[in-house]
Design a protein around this nucleic acid. Structure first.
Lengths: 210, 210, 210, 210
DNA sequence: TGATAACCGAGACGGTACGTCCCGTCTTGGG
DNA sequence: CCCAAGACGGGACGTACCGTCTCGGTTATCA
């Protein structure tokens, strides 16, 4: 929210007092970490609906007041815990073969979503659907990096001439990722490697008869 | 659950007592309708999380016990109300031009999801994510007919030679619909007609440079 | 608060429906009794400050919601429990000797206040001091009957000619009872029989030298 | 608690280091005064239960730690603030007419208790009822001087022959003061001058018919 | 003239009770 | 057997205050 860090403070000597070093006892970083770890653990164990603020507090060895001091409600805690645990986005190498790279990407995604990760992320999306604030965090911290990474890969492939010039890559990524999320959320079809294969093939080749 | 209807009861006279015509007062159909209407109204007004069984009962002029007599829990009532209000699936004409037909379909869908329908369906999916029973109803009553209709349309086009023989139409529909749901659920991009246009074009033409 | 009983209902036949018999599940009398018993028990065991709504609910085998359905807060429950347990006011016989009767009364009172009753009643007064509502209940249900009984006894004695005509008996009772409460509340002197004796003697004889 | 003053330190030169003149920054007297003033103000404004340590600290421009450094808990602060503000006991002149003097005393007391002072002192007593420590302070600092003063006045009158020899003056003062406190605490009757008049008259003349 | 030690503000912390809300079940009387 | 009304047990929520703690910074006195 507000800017608290002090950039380049090593260079400023006479202005140091302006950087009002936040009087009072500083926030306990260990408590923060314990809370996020506990929330992530409970999220995986009990599912979104099963997690309780009380349980997070007890598991983290923290008072409920501390939870509410730093997060406005349950969804905020869980969302931050989720992105803290799953925020990093492993890009993977660019082999030069856009089809193979994309296939690897989608296979990894379907495999992850088919496992424990699937129920967790379902819960997070369900929460994002009901809480604007949580949705923003989820988008910015989790979704955006992954989409950007995929769009980048396609853009590089287009520069290499592997993808036709006019293609809307943003939309293409929506179609690829959307299909997987669609199956995850609605469960109408299995999240198996063959699905990933067919999806990539469909997007690359298109439906129209030449 | 239990079998209540009494087939051919008009022919059996001496066995009438066996076919226990549900002695006592029959279920009030007006109450059922009032409940579904109230649930749908509240769902649109307050969103899934904001709806209360108490509120449904009061709005419908019905007692809470009546709700629980016929539905096992909140999500069951809301899901049935939702499919009752949005269950019918308007197929639309098959003009012979698969691109135009698909475009019409996706434009209608994006327009609907961009409006009040969007928050309602978000809520239903959120619930489906947490309740297996509700998920099954949602899939069977709402999702399946729409997917089937779209797959059918593509299949007819393939028979007409407009779509290449090897295409996996199930996966193609997942990609089309999934992209729209993806934007609805995560809100990372707008649900505008241009999105529908680009989506159909991407799917039909594919990404690969020929 | 509102009038719910139906006086003379045995005489009205055609107006019976007006006496709207309180539709819905009636209040559980057993729960009410259990609550009052539990509250009284905890009050004696833990003192006013030590009693918890949670504890009352658990001890009574009742949900916290039921407590708050019928009483607005802790002090209301405890006050009602207190007067339910200590409400009845044993008058004692009128022997014809006002001095002896009054002495018996004050000795009983000091003895009671010197024991466990003392801490309980201290707590109730402390609460009454902080809660107007509780104060009204305490006055009307506990204090008033006792004062009235004492004033009546003095009035009868005055009619018998044992007490001078001009004496303000209300004020006299305040002085008698007030002295005992004063010692209870401030603890500056012991609540022993001799104190009761001296008090009655002082009030009867007065201070002035004749 | 611990002995901090250093009597006769001006005479001891070689032992000065034993009487460690509390090295370091001394206690801030201004903070102490600000706290007591703030506590007294809040006590009058919000009543005992409404006062918060946090509020005292903020109002006094002092940290909560400073409060707890010098007082063990809330009641200790408020009690000290109360006696600091109301500790001095104005004796009033001894006119030689015990009746008139006592009347003046009781009228002043009823008038004070009928005003803002009433709620404050109620709160202090309520607290004293729940906290042994606070009770001792209240008795010793507030109550005792006033009782002693009244007993002294009566004793002088007895020496003058205005009060009969056998009267128990301690008990008489309890009856006088107790009656006023009784009305204050239970609120069953008004604290008006006429009450003071009747009270003094009752105590002086007694109830018994001669 | 520092050094030292206790002071001070700010405010985060664990803990505990509060009072509210909703769920899904039940118990009435009446149709 | 159904229905409206509404009380019930259960349990999570978010708030408030208590009394403790840990920071950085501030003064008096002692060395």
């Amino acid at each position: 929210m507000d800017e608290k860090d002090c950039p380049n403070s090593e260079h400023s000597t006479e202005l140091e007092h302006l950087c009002s070093k936040a009087a009072g006892r500083p926030r306990s970083e260990s408590a923060r970490q314990a809370i996020l770890v506990a929330a992530d653990y409970l999220l995986a164990r009990d599912g979104y609906g099963g997690v309780t603020m009380e349980a997070i507090a007890v598991t983290a060895g923290v008072s409920k007041a501390t939870l509410y001091r730093w997060w406005p409600n349950k969804s905020a805690v869980l969302m931050e815990a989720f992105v803290a645990a799953n925020g990093t986005c492993c890009a993977g190498p660019d082999t030069g073969d856009v089809g193979a790279d994309m296939l690897r990407r989608m296979r990894g995604m379907t495999a992850a979503f088919a496992g424990a990760m699937g129920v967790t992320i379902s819960g997070m999306i369900a929460e994002a659907l009901a809480d604007q604030e949580a949705a923003a965090v989820f988008r910015a911290q989790y979704l955006a990096p992954r989409r950007a990474e995929a769009v980048d890969a396609l853009t590089r492939a287009r520069k290499r001439g592997q993808i036709r010039a006019g293609a809307d890559l943003e939309v293409a990524v929506d179609a690829l990722y959307g299909a997987v999320y669609f199956r995850l959320l609605t469960g109408h079809g299995p999240l198996i490697p063959e699905f990933a294969d067919a999806l990539v093939e469909t997007l690359l080749s298109g439906l129209r008869e030449k």
